[in-house]
Structure formats: structure tokens, C-alpha cells
Amino acid sequence: MTRQAFLDRLRAGLRGLPTSAINDIVADYQAHFAEGVAAGRTEAEIAAALGEPDRVIRELRAEAGLKRWEEERNPSAAANAVLAVLGLGAIDVLVLLPILLPIAGVLFGLLVAAAACLGVGAVFFAAGPFFVHGAPVAAIILAGLGLISTGTCIGCLSSAASIAFVNGLVWYGRLHITILKPALQPKEIVA
């Protein structure tokens, strides 16, 4: 593979990352080729020693995904980090799915329950006295408040649990990050 082919594949594979990050990464590999050629190696030799661009891309994307999750804790960053880690093949999806899916399902269920408690509580609190008859107004309003605080509580607890869950996945993925693999299998077949 030539320098240009390697860099083109790298750039194409990194599409979607911030432009500055892509330029930075591509510049690193450009410099690597320049140094290698200056040291008397051919472009094909250098590309072969670098390994498959696809593997390099997976590692770089995973690193960028994990970094984003560390910087911003939101659902899209979480999804990104989890996908990046899965993309590494670091986590055996088939083995982990039976464990991951129920946990994710329970967390999602709790979030929905929290939202429902909040909604019903708000309705009771605001409009309960008008459509519920035969109970003291104070009791209905208090019941509404109770539902709202239950919803908030469940919501907070399950958000905390979700963050811990993604952090755990990321930690596990980092342990397995494929930086190791080339050390174990230095002679990778290069197309």
C-alpha cells in the first residue's frame, strides 16, 4: 500500500471526528511516512509495519469516543463510547449481551417509571382537587407531591446507576483496548 492509499483510508475512516483531531492524527502518520522514507524504507514497507488502517482507525475512534464521554456526560456521548468500545471487538458482544441487555432494560424501565411518576404527580398536584371527589384537598395535593418526589428520586438513582454502568463498560473496554494485540501478534497479514 502506498502512503497516499494509507492516508486516504485513514482520513475516510476517521470521518465524523472533529476536523482538528483528524488533521492532527493524519499529520502524525504523514510525518511517520516522511521519517521512514528518509531512513531509506519504501512506502510499502512502512505501511506494512503500521498495520491495517482499519485497526488503527478503530483504536483512534475508540480513544476519541472515550475521551468525549469523560468530558461530557450525556446520553449521546454514552452511546458513542459504548459503540466505540464494542467496535474494538474488545468486548465479546455475544457473551455480554445476555448480561448487558437486562441491565440496560431495567435502567430504561426505571427512567420511564420516573417520568410517569413525575407526570401523574404533577397532574394530581395541579388538577387533582378538581376531578377527585370524596377526599380532602390537602391529601390529594400531598399525594401529588409524594409522586413527584418519588419520580425525582427514582430518576436520580437510575441516572447515577446508568453513568456507573457506562463507566464500567468503558473501564472494561480500556483494559482490552487492542493496543495490545499487535504486541502479541506482530506479524499481521497486510492486504
Binding site: Y29, G51, V56, E63, I177, A183, E188
Partner: peptide, 10 residues
């Protein structure tokens, strides 16, 4: 230690 050169950058 026989490390793949490409892995140094990540």
C-alpha cells in the same frame, strides 16, 4: 518488543 509501529500513535 515487537510492537506494531502503528499502535504507538493511539
Amino acid at each position: 518488543i515487537g510492537m506494531g509501529e502503528g499502535t504507538i500513535y493511539p
